[in-house]
């Protein structure tokens, strides 16, 4: 179980006040535990990303939601593309070739 205290131990350049701001802004969304918020590994990686944007690169607080939204959209799209390519992969050989050929033609 990763508590807030542990997150700050792992990502040492983040302080509690900062983390609270990020959570309030919903840039990081830990699970609600019985007593306190509980983070998973994806949340910790997200805290690292925010630390990079906010503390190292100093992109500015106004830019952060814009960047996060774009990153989240890319990941959603990648996940959808993976679903789609998984489905295509399960098709018979001739269907797959046809899809591939048509896609290549249209990308020209």
């Amino acid at each position: 179980m990763i508590t807030e205290k542990k997150v700050i131990e792992i990502v040492r350049t983040v302080n509690p006040d900062q983390l609270h701001v990020w959570v309030r802004e919903q840039w990081v969304r830990p699970a609600q535990g019985e007593a306190e918020p509980v983070y998973n590994e994806a949340d910790v990686a997200r805290v690292r990303l925010l630390d990079m944007l906010d503390n190292q690169l100093e992109v500015g607080r106004e830019a952060i939601p814009v960047i996060l939204s774009l990153i989240d959209q890319i990941h959603d799209m990648r996940a959808q593309m993976q679903v789609l390519s998984g489905v295509i992969e399960e098709q018979p050989e001739d269907v797959r070739m046809q899809v591939l050929q048509m896609a290549l033609e249209r990308c020209k």
Binding site: N40, A42, A45, D72, D76
Partner: peptide
């Protein structure tokens, strides 16, 4: 070793950041 967010994005465990799956 550094765990980048991209290793988690769009996967189970990061669904709280998805606009809707």
């Amino acid at each position: 070793e550094y765990q980048y967010y991209k290793q988690y994005g769009g996967r189970p465990g990061a669904q709280q950041y998805s606009a809707g799956g």
